[in-house]
């Protein structure tokens, strides 16, 4: 490549670098600074306040619990759905389209839809009452029923965000030539063995992307929780919101934001390491 054109690549990426710098890096640095400052000096006061807050350990526990339940369920469901959709000979596109509808719904709207189902006067109670299974309205989403609240939130999250995993996995499945599976079939592998020994290992790069994306988003879960449980089910992002808006304490809110980021980065690092595909094993 001639030397005089060497500035062109930099010029081409400059707008996005400026954009990222202005709207991502600067706020990020500001947030980190905010979380570590009290007045004009460096201090861990915000973090102390965050950790000593009554809701903190509950929020950490709930966020991790939700992530640990929702993400594996989503991956297993999405794998099953992707396998089925890619086996369809007719109507593949329409099936995929229908399965991805929840992706087009904002998370708050999804939370409200599930609220309409599960609240005291919701569709679930009406149906159970009509069937004579309950004597009157049952509260599923109150502080007194933490497990049913948890499962309601988990169900809503699974419903809302499994499709993004599905889309990534279907794209990944399409990249695997069908000869691999056919060869395995000829040499004696049953369907489950083919899935385990051939499809799954070859799908690893897509699984890695899907897991990183879903896990990072799961640690940021907020709107669905807020719609269904409010502060009855504290989560990290919800606490950041409360400190920012209700308590007007930006420092503690920033500390929560930095904590969420640190957890997400750690999870991403774990996935990159555990699910790495060595270059010589790529197709």
């Amino acid at each position: 490549m001639p030397a005089r054109t060497s500035w062109i690549p930099y010029a081409l990426i400059a707008p996005s670098v400026v954009f990222l710098g202005a709207f991502f890096l600067i706020p990020l640095v500001q947030t980190i600074w905010l979380s570590f400052s009290a007045g004009d000096e460096l201090s861990l006061a915000n973090y102390e306040r965050m950790v000593n807050d009554l809701n903190f350990s509950l929020a950490v526990r709930n966020t991790f619990l939700l992530t640990l339940v929702v993400v594996p369920v989503q991956v297993v469901l999405a794998l099953a759905m992707a396998t089925m959709v890619s086996k369809l000979e007719k109507g593949r596109d329409i099936a995929l389209w229908i399965l991805t509808i929840p992706l087009g719904i904002s998370d708050l709207a999804a939370g409200l839809a599930w609220l309409a189902l599960l609240q005291n006067t919701g569709y679930l109670n009406s149906a159970l009452y009509a069937l004579g299974l309950i004597p009157g309205p049952v509260g599923w989403l109150s502080q007194e029923t933490p497990w049913s609240l948890f499962f309601a939130i988990a169900a809503a999250e699974v419903w809302r965000a499994t499709a993004i995993v599905l889309v990534i996995l279907i794209a990944g499945l399409q990249l695997i030539p069908k000869e691999f599976s056919e060869a395995a079939e000829i040499f004696g592998a049953r369907p489950w063995t083919r899935f385990r020994r051939i499809t799954l290992p070859l799908l690893k790069p897509s699984l890695q992307s899907a897991l990183i994306l879903r896990t990072v988003l799961a640690f940021e879960v907020f709107a669905v929780v807020y719609a269904l449980g409010g502060r009855n089910f504290p989560v990290l992002a919800g606490e950041a919101y409360t400190w920012q808006n209700e308590n007007q304490n930006y420092g503690v809110a920033a500390a929560y934001a930095v904590l969420i980021m640190a957890i997400s980065l750690a999870a991403t690092a774990v996935y990159l390491r555990v699910l790495r595909t060595r270059p010589e094993q790529l197709p």
């Binding site: 395995a184 000829i186 070859l202």
Partner: peptide
């Protein structure tokens, strides 16, 4: 296929990369 007692060589080899 697995019950037919045969083996096959594919055009693009289909050698498992992993």
């Amino acid at each position: 296929p697995r019950r037919r007692g045969l083996a096959m060589v594919f055009q693009n080899y289909a050698v498992f990369p992993h």
